[in-house]
Write a protein that binds this DNA or RNA. Sequence first.
DNA 1: GGTCAATGGGTAAAGATTACACAATATTAT
DNA 2: ATAATATTGTGTAATCTTTACCCATTGACC
Lengths: 255, 255
Amino acid sequence: MMDQRLKEYLELTLKEVSIDCVIFGFHAGELKVLLLKWKGTDGWSLPGGRIYLEESVNDAAVRILQERTGLKEIFLQQFYTFGSNDRYKNMDVEALIRKLEWTFGTEFYDEKYMKRNVSLGYMALVEFEQVVATPDWYTDECMWCEISNVPELLFDHNEMIDIALKALRRQVSYQPIGYNLLPEKFTMPELQRLYETILGKQLDRRNFQKLVLSYGILEKLPEKRVGGAFKAPFLYRFDKEKYDRATKEEILFAI
Amino acid sequence: MMDQRLKEYLELTLKEVSIDCVIFGFHAGELKVLLLKWKGTDGWSLPGGRIYLEESVNDAAVRILQERTGLKEIFLQQFYTFGSNDRYKNMDVEALIRKLEWTFGTEFYDEKYMKRNVSLGYMALVEFEQVVATPDWYTDECMWCEISNVPELLFDHNEMIDIALKALRRQVSYQPIGYNLLPEKFTMPELQRLYETILGKQLDRRNFQKLVLSYGILEKLPEKRVGGAFKAPFLYRFDKEKYDRATKEEILFAI
DNA sequence: GGTCAATGGGTAAAGATTACACAATATTAT
DNA sequence: ATAATATTGTGTAATCTTTACCCATTGACC
């Protein structure tokens, strides 16, 4: 039974630390973030979860992401650990606890852990057409929300999104992205749109191409993308070996 | 009594999360890291500590740093959170616990928390001549160790130092440093030596000066540093307001 | 006063970034 | 079929940034 499983989950996980994920969704030039609505309340929050006693923190983040989106082996990275003692200052914790008690029963809620919890912030970047968004035990509704139009969230989750976005934009300067976000074969304009979406600004077509090619992680294919309107663009593919090396070495991508 | 205070400390702090600090010491062109030797063992580790129940994580890091070095209000930053489930794979935890039991008495050691603990990594940068290094309850000896010559440490602390150094070097590209590391009035060569020490490479004197001045956070004083040998260099001082603004805005320092 | 070791200021070359224009092409409308 | 259209492919000049390098000046020391 559901409540039994939730009870076990709460018992078999770490109590003082949990994970919150800022899942950025990319599609057709839009950058969105995945939000969940808490059962029995009208409060929205980031997807999160707990860490099993024997599980590594990074594995927990991968698992939580997979539970919420169905996706694995994608761009996922720790970006900050939130441990203020006033993380809930903007909200009525008592009222939330009362609502949760009403929804789940009182026995699962230890006030101590509702008030003092360290959150490890992870960010992910996914193609949101590939995502099968799935609520968790606490939530009953998912929403992809425009990054510029996020409502007031529970806890300190608005701040988390701000910090994650900054971290993501900085990350892009140190690591290649695109693998697992684009189809295996993609066109230069598609890659450019990915970067433009993340950075939130327009880039020059020719300069972008020159730059990206200079990093030597792309392989130009003899084929072209057919079927689309207008002139057929060439297809490219990541040279996975060089891509991985660049990821590790943190080459500066001056994009 | 000492043991009573230790017992209280263990009881009044979070159990599953703790803090480890990589304290980089800068002086006369050398970069060192502060290590502590555990009582009753010959194992060395990074300084660390626990977080009080009502304390913010960042405050705890400040407190721990002050307890170990006597210094406050210095460069101190979260750099990574370590949460592998094999963090202690390189060491004999059983043997360490036995030694700790012998030294402190068995009652303080909960095997569970010795084996599964999430560590928040903080790095600090200090002038190590200003430091009064002070061991903690677990340790009885302090050592400043050349960064290139660190012995094998307990837990995953060698890895922590590697990651902290990378983070420090990257940080230097995004934020000005030097305030609280240099005297109020300092010379251009002194500032340059600080950067050279952190980055581990030589920089061109004239280019360095041109670059640093272009960021507009320095104020050139009409005085010179007298008393030293050879030509007297001009003194500079940070414009604190602009310095703080640059710290917040994360201007790119292409040094 | 000369020597020495370091600072102060500036310039030329190399490299990176930015700005910009026109030909080619596949679909769509006529 | 042909023209119109929106998009891709490619190259070059101008600007800005970074790097490399020189020689005069200064103050302590002999």
